[in-house]
Amino acid sequence: MGAQVHGTQEFNESKRAEIEFSDEAMATVQKLISNYPEGKQKSALIPVLHVAQAEFDGWLSPEVMDYVASILNIKAIEVFEVASFYSMFNLKPVGKCVFEVCQTSSCWLNGAEDIIKYIEKKLNIKVGETTKDGLFTLKVAECLGSCGTAPMLQCGASYHEKLTYEKVDRLIDSYKAEGKRRSYTDKDYKNTL
């Protein structure tokens, strides 16, 4: 059962009972499973976890992982070992908008450190923290493939490139005004260059 395999997080039976995909999410999940041959439904695990993370507040709780395991008919530990391996899965609650600032070579050469420090100051949080209103989480990321348009940050599905302090200001304002959760699975991505 979940409680044993989910490390420090508590497993809550009653919370687990409440978890269920919306009809739309469930249809997406069924479509994903159908991409693989009969009996190979485990292959859909990573895509399904993305759907789950978007559906259940931006992170994968032990209860959500247990639920995903039941849908794919695999063990909870199989879900946890995958969720804990990949850096895009959050195993703790995060803000509605997670800013992931790239910091690898080309971005560093183009001033990523200054951008990180600027966002820290602007949001009054440090890397790895979430603002008190629960709106923003700041993270750093390794190379996101925007080296020619550095520095950059990712928020949900959107790539924001060629960052300047002014651009960061505008981004924060627009995400604030929107006030909604941003996920990797968003279809309405708004890349800015």
Binding site: I46, G145, Q154, A157, Y159, Y184, D186, Y189
Partner: peptide, 10 residues
Amino acid sequence: IRGEYFYVAR
């Protein structure tokens, strides 16, 4: 495709 390229996957 790498997960960060979700919009490219779309």
